[in-house]
Design a protein around this nucleic acid. Structure first.
Lengths: 115, 115
DNA sequence: TCGACATTTCGATAACTGTCGAATTGATTA
DNA sequence: TAATCAATTCGACAGTTATCGAAATGTCGA
Protein backbone atom coordinates (compact mmCIF):
# COMPACT_ATOMS: atom_id res chain seq x y z
CA UNK A 1 0.00 0.00 0.00
CA UNK A 2 1.26 3.43 -0.88
CA UNK A 3 2.17 5.20 2.31
CA UNK A 4 -0.58 7.60 3.18
CA UNK A 5 1.90 10.02 4.72
CA UNK A 6 3.06 10.79 1.23
CA UNK A 7 -0.35 11.97 0.28
CA UNK A 8 -1.52 13.43 3.56
CA UNK A 9 -2.79 16.91 2.86
CA UNK A 10 -2.10 19.88 5.03
CA UNK A 11 -5.21 21.69 3.95
CA UNK A 12 -6.55 21.41 0.41
CA UNK A 13 -3.90 21.14 -2.31
CA UNK A 14 -3.40 17.93 -4.27
CA UNK A 15 0.15 16.71 -3.83
CA UNK A 16 2.58 15.35 -6.41
CA UNK A 17 3.80 12.50 -4.15
CA UNK A 18 6.95 10.90 -5.54
CA UNK A 19 6.68 7.17 -5.91
CA UNK A 20 9.46 4.91 -4.71
CA UNK A 21 10.45 1.74 -6.46
CA UNK A 22 8.06 -0.58 -4.65
CA UNK A 23 5.13 1.78 -5.02
CA UNK A 24 5.89 2.35 -8.67
CA UNK A 25 5.91 -1.39 -9.22
CA UNK A 26 2.61 -1.93 -7.42
CA UNK A 27 0.92 0.84 -9.35
CA UNK A 28 2.17 -0.40 -12.72
CA UNK A 29 1.13 -3.95 -11.96
CA UNK A 30 -2.29 -2.74 -10.93
CA UNK A 31 -2.68 -0.76 -14.13
CA UNK A 32 -1.40 -3.54 -16.37
CA UNK A 33 -4.47 -5.72 -16.17
CA UNK A 34 -7.07 -4.62 -18.73
CA UNK A 35 -10.12 -5.27 -16.61
CA UNK A 36 -8.59 -3.50 -13.68
CA UNK A 37 -7.73 -0.56 -15.84
CA UNK A 38 -11.27 -0.42 -17.11
CA UNK A 39 -12.53 -0.51 -13.55
CA UNK A 40 -10.24 2.34 -12.63
CA UNK A 41 -11.43 4.28 -15.67
CA UNK A 42 -15.02 3.90 -14.56
CA UNK A 43 -14.16 5.00 -11.05
CA UNK A 44 -12.27 8.00 -12.38
CA UNK A 45 -14.98 9.07 -14.78
CA UNK A 46 -17.81 8.66 -12.33
CA UNK A 47 -18.70 12.05 -10.92
CA UNK A 48 -19.15 10.49 -7.50
CA UNK A 49 -18.01 7.48 -5.47
CA UNK A 50 -18.85 4.42 -7.52
CA UNK A 51 -20.93 1.74 -5.83
CA UNK A 52 -19.39 -1.69 -6.01
CA UNK A 53 -22.63 -3.13 -7.36
CA UNK A 54 -22.55 -0.64 -10.21
CA UNK A 55 -19.07 -1.68 -11.15
CA UNK A 56 -20.20 -5.28 -10.99
CA UNK A 57 -23.03 -4.56 -13.40
CA UNK A 58 -20.77 -2.70 -15.81
CA UNK A 59 -17.94 -5.18 -16.03
CA UNK A 60 -18.93 -8.77 -16.73
CA UNK A 61 -17.04 -10.58 -14.02
CA UNK A 62 -18.03 -12.39 -10.86
CA UNK A 63 -18.32 -10.66 -7.53
CA UNK A 64 -15.32 -12.60 -6.28
CA UNK A 65 -13.17 -11.36 -9.13
CA UNK A 66 -14.32 -7.79 -8.68
CA UNK A 67 -13.46 -7.99 -5.01
CA UNK A 68 -9.99 -9.18 -5.92
CA UNK A 69 -9.39 -6.34 -8.35
CA UNK A 70 -10.69 -3.78 -5.90
CA UNK A 71 -8.21 -5.02 -3.36
CA UNK A 72 -5.36 -4.76 -5.86
CA UNK A 73 -6.24 -1.19 -6.78
CA UNK A 74 -6.63 -0.32 -3.13
CA UNK A 75 -3.33 -1.76 -2.01
CA UNK A 76 -1.58 -0.06 -4.92
CA UNK A 77 -2.92 3.16 -3.44
CA UNK A 78 -4.87 4.02 -6.56
CA UNK A 79 -8.32 4.05 -5.01
CA UNK A 80 -9.94 4.46 -1.68
CA UNK A 81 -12.71 2.18 -0.54
CA UNK A 82 -15.32 3.51 1.79
CA UNK A 83 -17.36 0.74 3.38
CA UNK A 84 -20.80 1.70 4.52
CA UNK A 85 -22.95 -1.05 5.91
CA UNK A 86 -23.61 -3.60 3.21
CA UNK A 87 -22.11 -1.42 0.51
CA UNK A 88 -18.73 -0.29 -0.65
CA UNK A 89 -17.93 2.85 -2.59
CA UNK A 90 -14.88 3.41 -4.72
CA UNK A 91 -13.12 6.69 -5.34
CA UNK A 92 -9.95 7.61 -7.14
CA UNK A 93 -7.18 8.62 -4.80
CA UNK A 94 -5.85 11.88 -6.12
CA UNK A 95 -2.18 12.36 -6.84
CA UNK A 96 -1.07 8.84 -7.59
CA UNK A 97 -1.83 8.83 -11.29
CA UNK A 98 -0.13 12.23 -11.81
CA UNK A 99 2.86 10.97 -9.84
CA UNK A 100 3.13 7.98 -12.13
CA UNK A 101 2.72 10.22 -15.16
CA UNK A 102 5.47 12.58 -14.11
CA UNK A 103 7.75 9.66 -13.35
CA UNK A 104 7.32 8.40 -16.90
CA UNK A 105 7.74 11.84 -18.39
CA UNK A 106 10.92 12.48 -16.49
CA UNK A 107 12.27 9.15 -17.69
CA UNK A 108 11.98 10.24 -21.27
CA UNK A 109 13.29 13.72 -20.68
CA UNK A 110 16.36 12.14 -19.12
CA UNK A 111 17.10 10.81 -22.55
CA UNK A 112 19.69 12.77 -24.48
CA UNK A 113 20.11 10.52 -27.51
CA UNK A 114 18.13 12.27 -30.20
CA UNK A 115 18.01 9.48 -32.70
CA UNK B 1 3.85 -3.73 -31.56
CA UNK B 2 2.82 -0.11 -31.50
CA UNK B 3 1.97 0.93 -35.03
CA UNK B 4 4.84 2.92 -36.39
CA UNK B 5 2.48 5.04 -38.46
CA UNK B 6 1.39 6.65 -35.25
CA UNK B 7 4.87 7.84 -34.59
CA UNK B 8 6.08 8.41 -38.13
CA UNK B 9 7.53 11.85 -38.31
CA UNK B 10 6.88 14.28 -41.12
CA UNK B 11 10.11 16.11 -40.51
CA UNK B 12 11.53 16.58 -37.04
CA UNK B 13 8.94 17.12 -34.30
CA UNK B 14 8.31 14.50 -31.59
CA UNK B 15 4.68 13.41 -31.67
CA UNK B 16 2.23 12.81 -28.84
CA UNK B 17 0.83 9.58 -30.38
CA UNK B 18 -2.40 8.51 -28.73
CA UNK B 19 -2.33 4.95 -27.49
CA UNK B 20 -5.22 2.62 -28.15
CA UNK B 21 -6.37 -0.02 -25.75
CA UNK B 22 -4.13 -2.80 -26.96
CA UNK B 23 -1.06 -0.59 -27.10
CA UNK B 24 -1.78 0.83 -23.69
CA UNK B 25 -2.00 -2.67 -22.29
CA UNK B 26 1.26 -3.77 -23.90
CA UNK B 27 3.11 -0.74 -22.65
CA UNK B 28 1.82 -1.10 -19.09
CA UNK B 29 2.66 -4.80 -19.02
CA UNK B 30 6.13 -4.02 -20.29
CA UNK B 31 6.66 -1.39 -17.61
CA UNK B 32 5.25 -3.52 -14.82
CA UNK B 33 8.22 -5.83 -14.48
CA UNK B 34 10.90 -4.30 -12.23
CA UNK B 35 13.90 -5.60 -14.16
CA UNK B 36 12.42 -4.49 -17.43
CA UNK B 37 11.74 -1.07 -15.99
CA UNK B 38 15.30 -0.84 -14.80
CA UNK B 39 16.52 -1.82 -18.24
CA UNK B 40 14.36 0.86 -19.78
CA UNK B 41 15.70 3.37 -17.30
CA UNK B 42 19.26 2.56 -18.31
CA UNK B 43 18.40 2.87 -21.97
CA UNK B 44 16.70 6.18 -21.36
CA UNK B 45 19.49 7.61 -19.28
CA UNK B 46 22.27 6.50 -21.60
CA UNK B 47 23.29 9.40 -23.73
CA UNK B 48 23.63 7.09 -26.72
CA UNK B 49 22.31 3.75 -27.98
CA UNK B 50 23.02 1.19 -25.29
CA UNK B 51 24.89 -1.91 -26.35
CA UNK B 52 23.18 -5.12 -25.36
CA UNK B 53 26.36 -6.40 -23.74
CA UNK B 54 26.48 -3.29 -21.54
CA UNK B 55 22.94 -3.89 -20.37
CA UNK B 56 23.87 -7.47 -19.69
CA UNK B 57 26.79 -6.37 -17.54
CA UNK B 58 24.67 -3.88 -15.61
CA UNK B 59 21.72 -6.09 -14.78
CA UNK B 60 22.52 -9.44 -13.30
CA UNK B 61 20.50 -11.72 -15.51
CA UNK B 62 21.34 -14.28 -18.15
CA UNK B 63 21.63 -13.38 -21.81
CA UNK B 64 18.51 -15.37 -22.54
CA UNK B 65 16.50 -13.41 -20.04
CA UNK B 66 17.83 -10.12 -21.32
CA UNK B 67 16.88 -11.09 -24.83
CA UNK B 68 13.38 -11.86 -23.65
CA UNK B 69 12.98 -8.49 -21.94
CA UNK B 70 14.37 -6.65 -24.92
CA UNK B 71 11.78 -8.30 -27.10
CA UNK B 72 9.01 -7.29 -24.72
CA UNK B 73 10.09 -3.67 -24.66
CA UNK B 74 10.48 -3.68 -28.41
CA UNK B 75 7.10 -5.16 -29.17
CA UNK B 76 5.49 -2.74 -26.76
CA UNK B 77 6.99 -0.03 -28.91
CA UNK B 78 9.01 1.41 -26.06
CA UNK B 79 12.44 0.89 -27.58
CA UNK B 80 14.02 0.43 -30.94
CA UNK B 81 16.64 -2.23 -31.54
CA UNK B 82 19.28 -1.61 -34.13
CA UNK B 83 21.11 -4.79 -35.06
CA UNK B 84 24.59 -4.33 -36.40
CA UNK B 85 26.50 -7.49 -37.18
CA UNK B 86 27.01 -9.40 -33.96
CA UNK B 87 25.78 -6.56 -31.82
CA UNK B 88 22.49 -4.97 -30.89
CA UNK B 89 21.93 -1.41 -29.73
CA UNK B 90 18.94 -0.20 -27.77
CA UNK B 91 17.39 3.25 -27.90
CA UNK B 92 14.30 4.74 -26.35
CA UNK B 93 11.57 5.34 -28.84
CA UNK B 94 10.42 8.90 -28.31
CA UNK B 95 6.79 9.72 -27.73
CA UNK B 96 5.51 6.53 -26.21
CA UNK B 97 6.31 7.33 -22.59
CA UNK B 98 4.80 10.84 -22.86
CA UNK B 99 1.73 9.34 -24.53
CA UNK B 100 1.31 6.96 -21.61
CA UNK B 101 1.86 9.79 -19.16
CA UNK B 102 -0.76 12.00 -20.73
CA UNK B 103 -3.20 9.11 -20.82
CA UNK B 104 -2.81 8.67 -17.08
CA UNK B 105 -3.04 12.36 -16.40
CA UNK B 106 -6.20 12.74 -18.43
CA UNK B 107 -7.72 9.83 -16.53
CA UNK B 108 -7.37 11.70 -13.30
CA UNK B 109 -8.48 15.02 -14.66
CA UNK B 110 -11.64 13.30 -15.87
CA UNK B 111 -12.44 12.83 -12.24
CA UNK B 112 -14.92 15.32 -10.83
CA UNK B 113 -15.47 13.83 -7.39
CA UNK B 114 -13.40 16.04 -5.12
CA UNK B 115 -13.51 13.87 -2.07
C1' DT C 1 -35.17 -13.56 14.97
C1' DC C 2 -35.14 -14.75 10.18
C1' DG C 3 -34.29 -14.24 5.52
C1' DA C 4 -32.37 -11.63 1.82
C1' DC C 5 -28.63 -9.35 0.12
C1' DA C 6 -23.61 -7.16 -0.73
C1' DT C 7 -19.26 -8.16 -0.20
C1' DT C 8 -15.34 -11.00 1.08
C1' DT C 9 -12.74 -15.16 1.75
C1' DC C 10 -11.42 -19.82 0.51
C1' DG C 11 -9.85 -23.43 -2.43
C1' DA C 12 -9.00 -24.88 -6.87
C1' DT C 13 -7.66 -24.43 -11.56
C1' DA C 14 -5.89 -22.72 -15.86
C1' DA C 15 -3.07 -19.51 -18.05
C1' DC C 16 0.73 -16.58 -18.10
C1' DT C 17 5.44 -15.12 -17.29
C1' DG C 18 10.27 -14.64 -15.64
C1' DT C 19 14.11 -17.36 -15.40
C1' DC C 20 17.71 -20.38 -16.78
C1' DG C 21 20.93 -23.74 -19.35
C1' DA C 22 21.58 -25.73 -23.64
C1' DA C 23 21.44 -25.53 -28.41
C1' DT C 24 21.26 -22.56 -32.50
C1' DT C 25 22.23 -18.80 -35.61
C1' DG C 26 24.91 -15.54 -37.72
C1' DA C 27 29.03 -12.58 -37.94
C1' DT C 28 33.88 -11.65 -37.18
C1' DT C 29 38.60 -13.02 -36.86
C1' DA C 30 42.59 -16.11 -36.88
C1' DT D 1 37.96 -22.99 -43.08
C1' DA D 2 37.77 -23.20 -38.22
C1' DA D 3 37.28 -21.03 -33.86
C1' DT D 4 35.11 -17.55 -31.24
C1' DC D 5 31.75 -14.66 -29.76
C1' DA D 6 26.99 -11.89 -29.39
C1' DA D 7 22.59 -12.62 -29.54
C1' DT D 8 18.46 -15.48 -30.09
C1' DT D 9 15.60 -19.50 -29.72
C1' DC D 10 14.09 -23.68 -27.41
C1' DG D 11 12.38 -26.46 -23.71
C1' DA D 12 11.56 -26.76 -19.10
C1' DC D 13 10.33 -25.23 -14.62
C1' DA D 14 8.73 -22.41 -10.71
C1' DG D 15 6.10 -18.71 -9.20
C1' DT D 16 2.37 -15.61 -9.95
C1' DT D 17 -2.26 -14.32 -11.04
C1' DA D 18 -6.99 -13.97 -13.00
C1' DT D 19 -10.90 -16.43 -12.61
C1' DC D 20 -14.71 -18.90 -10.72
C1' DG D 21 -18.17 -21.38 -7.51
C1' DA D 22 -19.07 -22.21 -2.95
C1' DA D 23 -18.98 -20.92 1.62
C1' DA D 24 -18.62 -17.36 5.08
C1' DT D 25 -19.38 -12.75 7.02
C1' DG D 26 -21.87 -8.96 8.17
C1' DT D 27 -25.95 -5.75 7.47
C1' DC D 28 -30.51 -4.48 6.84
C1' DG D 29 -35.54 -4.91 6.77
C1' DA D 30 -39.67 -7.65 7.79
Amino acid sequence: MVDSRNTARTTEAAKPARLNRAQRCLVLKALADPRRFELLERIAKAGCPLACAQALAALSISAATLSHHVKELESAGLIRVRRDGKFAYLTLRPGVLPAMASLLTSLESANCARR
